[in-house]
């Protein structure tokens, strides 16, 4: 029954990866910014939620504040860091290094304010319930999977049915065309950052309630989101979502064979192989030549 237990854990972890990866993929797909500080948005949201919860504001207020903090951070990054860099030269790597630098700064600020050790919010939701012999699943796992489904459907409807959503998809292909239609690429870019950052909130909250937080978690989350985006195929948000689940499952099922410290290596071995064998990703829109 070990593998069944690990499958359930994998699905929960995968759901959290899937949502952060979808956020990264949305931002990257629309703006072509390698938003490495996406992991910083994740820890920031998680710690805001933790702060609200420990100071007795309640869970709903905590989630709202976390969402506001993540979105404000994303938009601020876009306006204050990426836009000035893109205005002059703006190479891919200049943006990447700046983003990485901000990520380091946020991680250490949070470390100074909240301490560097693990903190967690105790709640009944994280207590595992026996499903069958040897298989325990906490209510949080169901919430995580439901959140992933819900947000994904909402995101798809938004991208395919609304004008702003369609404009976002067009932004990656041709900012000029967007301008010709009388839309403002800068404003759309900010919307992409706000939405993409909003997608970290469910994972951040569930992580705070479940396995606990520490400031370096952002780094790990970011690497996984990036891997999922590439494995799923750049430009495919659905691909990123599925890849998030695949990586979450792989990381946990690998425990059958490997010791736990090797699980991250399993994720990145998958990434490396996918790039070598199927560079466009599993669900990439563009076939390899």
């Amino acid at each position: 029954m070990l593998w069944l237990q690990l499958t359930f854990t994998g699905l929960q972890v995968g759901a959290l990866y899937a949502l952060t990866a979808a956020g990264f993929s949305l931002i990257f797909g629309a703006t072509r910014v390698f938003h490495f500080a996406h992991g910083a948005a994740f820890v920031l949201a998680a710690y805001v939620f933790y702060w609200a919860e420990t100071s007795g504001l309640g869970m709903v207020a905590g989630i709202v504040l976390a969402a506001l903090a993540a979105m404000a951070f994303g938009v601020a990054m876009d306006r204050l860091v990426y836009a000035p860099i893109q205005r002059h030269e703006g190479s891919f790597f200049t943006v990447f290094v700046a983003s990485f630098g901000i990520g380091i700064a946020v991680q250490n600020v949070l470390g100074m304010v909240f301490g560097r050790s693990f903190v967690t919010i105790s709640t009944g939701l994280s207590r595992s319930v026996k499903l069958m012999d040897g298989v325990y699943v906490s209510p949080l796992a169901w919430i995580a999977v439901a959140c992933a489904g819900l947000f994904f459907v909402a995101l798809l409807l938004f991208l395919n049915r609304t004008h702003v959503g369609m404009a976002l998809r067009a932004l990656a292909d041709s900012p000029e065309l967007i301008r010709a239609y009388g839309l403002d690429p800068r404003r759309l870019s900010s919307i992409a950052f706000a939405l993409g950052s909003l997608l970290v909130v469910p994972s951040a909250v569930i992580t705070a309630l479940g396995s606990g937080l520490n400031p370096t978690l952002g780094h790990h989350v970011m690497l996984i989101s990036l891997a999922a985006t590439i494995v799923g195929g750049i430009g495919s948000i659905g691909g990123a979502l599925v890849a998030g689940f695949i990586l979450g499952l792989a990381e946990n099922l690998a425990l059958v064979v490997f010791e736990s410290q090797w699980t991250e290596a399993v994720t990145f071995a998958i990434l490396f192989l996918v790039i070598l064998l199927r560079p466009a990703g599993l669900f990439g829109r563009h076939a390899t030549r």
Binding site: A98, S99, G101, I102, G103, I104, A105, V106, V109
Partner: peptide
């Protein structure tokens, strides 16, 4: 923090 911000 200084090093990260400096980079950015």
């Amino acid at each position: 923090i200084i090093y990260g911000l400096g980079m950015a």
